[in-house]
Computed example of a mutant assay.
Amino acid sequence: MASVAIDDYLKTIYHHTEWQTAKITPSQLAAKLGLAPSTVTEMVQKLSAQDLVSHRPYGPISLTDAGERRAAAIIRRHRLIETWLVREFGYAWDEVHDEAEVLEHAISDRLLEGISARLGHPRFDPHGDAIPDADGHVDREPFVRLDEVAPGHTGRVLRVSDSDPDLLRALEAAGIDVGHTVTVTGRRSVRVDEGSLVELPSGAASLVWLSA
């Protein structure tokens, strides 16, 4: 089994439960990977045989301890590279994902740790996602998704999903990026840093996580 393919499966399962608690189903995993359900079912069985995932037929999929460690290691590589590209090479936060996908499989452990040291061992990537440490541990404070809170809630932007580059750029232009404070004023409107009101693009509120 190709190592890259294994990593892609484990990363996708890991990502699914980072910012919510429901375990991923085989159909969700197939949709996220853009693969046929039968292909995913076969691969999940192989991963289960290697003790990387826990899965019963037709049930949800979760990572074992070994799977979690391996997923955290590759995610650490990806997010450190994204942070490196933004800080050292002037990439915008909507440009780094595809580059990191390639580089995460190419650089050595020595170079990766050199990058981490040069950056001051960052805990979060440009999108606010936690960077696992060398042991796979992450720091994450209580959070809530912007579209799930009532008007009046105020919180710091902890994370902005990079799943839609166009919405990512729109949110950045509106000042809604990691570290800023927003107060929810309506279903699609917020006040940024106690300043002006901002009307959110359709679908954008589901991409932003605030401190709870």
Rank of each mutant, 00 (worst) to 15 (best):
131 I>E: 00
115 I>N: 01
183 T>R: 11
116 S>C: 05
155 G>D: 02
186 G>S: 13
157 V>G: 07
145 R>I: 06
151 P>W: 01
182 V>H: 07
181 T>V: 15
169 R>N: 04
134 A>H: 08
168 L>W: 13
141 E>I: 05
144 V>H: 00
159 R>M: 09
123 R>Q: 04
139 D>T: 11
130 A>N: 06
127 H>F: 12
129 D>F: 01
149 V>S: 01
169 R>V: 10
120 G>Y: 10
174 A>G: 02
157 V>Q: 07
166 D>W: 12
134 A>E: 06
128 G>N: 04
154 T>A: 09
171 L>C: 13
124 F>N: 00
152 G>W: 03
135 D>A: 12
162 D>Q: 07
141 E>M: 07
161 S>Y: 00
173 A>R: 14
124 F>V: 05
162 D>V: 02
178 V>E: 11
164 D>E: 06
184 V>H: 15
168 L>E: 14
136 G>Y: 10
157 V>I: 11
168 L>G: 15
175 G>R: 11
171 L>R: 11
119 L>W: 07
125 D>H: 05
136 G>R: 08
146 L>S: 01
157 V>E: 06
191 R>N: 12
169 R>G: 14
137 H>G: 03
165 P>T: 01
131 I>H: 01
147 D>K: 01
183 T>D: 13
153 H>K: 10
138 V>R: 11
148 E>A: 11
128 G>I: 02
138 V>P: 02
132 P>G: 04
156 R>C: 00
144 V>F: 06
150 A>D: 08
163 S>Q: 10
161 S>K: 02
113 E>V: 13
165 P>W: 03
166 D>G: 06
179 G>T: 03
117 A>H: 11
167 L>G: 09
113 E>D: 15
171 L>W: 10
